[in-house]
């Protein structure tokens, strides 16, 4: 049974969100990584499709702290379809999330602090991604 199209459809039904969420890959070339003096730093933003739903954890953070996740009440939880992001991409440390408004202006940038897959029928269906805002 392939649940993925149903999950993607459900995420699209709940949306569209107020802000669009993008995955951001940061690539640095040249310079000296050891001292943080990079030659050039480029970012590539890709709109997540379907768009994730998200919320701030609030008091649920206490429960997640108990299982060892370093999150706080202001940490965001994104429910992302595995169609939009793969576990291979999530393993890349240069991956982050950004949110932009309808005009494409960046509003928030996030640092991913942890993720956990929701699995079924032998595959990752969605990921719960925990991320902290770094731009305010």
């Amino acid at each position: 049974m392939n649940l993925q199209p149903i999950i993607d459809q459900a995420l699209r039904f709940v949306g569209p969100p107020v802000l669009n969420t993008y995955k951001r890959l940061t690539t640095s070339t040249g310079g000296d990584a050891l001292t943080g003096r990079y030659g050039s730093v480029t970012t590539a933003d890709t709109l997540l499709d379907p768009q994730p739903i998200y919320r701030q954890l609030g008091k649920d953070a206490e429960v997640l702290n108990a299982v060892g996740l370093a999150v706080s009440g202001t940490t965001y939880e994104f429910l992302v379809s595995s169609t939009a992001l793969s576990d291979v991409e999530l393993a890349q440390k240069n991956l982050s999330l950004v949110q932009k408004d309808a005009a494409g202006t960046q509003v928030l940038a996030f640092k991913i602090v942890g993720f956990t897959p929701v699995q079924g029928f032998g595959k990752n269906l969605t990921f719960k991604i925990f991320a902290d805002v770094v731009t305010r």
């Binding site: 640095s28 050891l34 001292t35 943080g36 240069n94 770094v134």
Partner: peptide, 15 residues
């Protein structure tokens, strides 16, 4: 492998 630790949002691997 020397890994510097510093706050660097563009390079979260250093954090």
């Amino acid at each position: 492998t020397v890994h510097p630790l510093r706050t660097d949002h563009a390079h979260p691997e250093n954090e």
